[in-house]
Amino acid sequence: MTTSIEQLLAEQPYFKGLSASQLAAITGCAKNVRFEAGEPLIREGEDANEFFVIRQGKVALEASAPAGPITIQTLGDGDVVGWSWLVQPHTWRFGAIAMGLTRAISLDGECMRRKCEEDHDLGFELLKRFSFLISERLEATRLQLLDVYSPPPARGLRR
């Protein structure tokens, strides 16, 4: 039995609560994709024309560095990869690579933007979800910035 892509989308926690017509609209932008271990989902600097919802697998967000890429965050089942499709100039700022076999749904950026322009209710629903996602990632980033497990900073006294 094959599952329709509309059903797959509806199962994603990320799209929970969207109306049937909204889901149907998005379905038109969606396709199933699959990445082997080590295969990039997105590349830093390239045009951001899509985003992914991971159905199953694990993806590493990376920044390139002289000594090799540094993993900033790993994402797993149900997580969304990428929001640069929503933000101008629609260019990937980080890379993402599959850490193992990864199945995902790809949503076309241009298509999604068009749907949102046509239906502002849908646009607002998605924006709320992306705002939540961005704030969650920002909070995590701030915690990482605090470097709470680091050796004691050179402030105050030492013993």
Binding site: P152, P153, R155, G156, L157, R159
Partner: peptide, 10 residues
Amino acid sequence: LDFSYIHGGA
């Protein structure tokens, strides 16, 4: 200041 010192600072 030293009274409440824990590693990392007071």
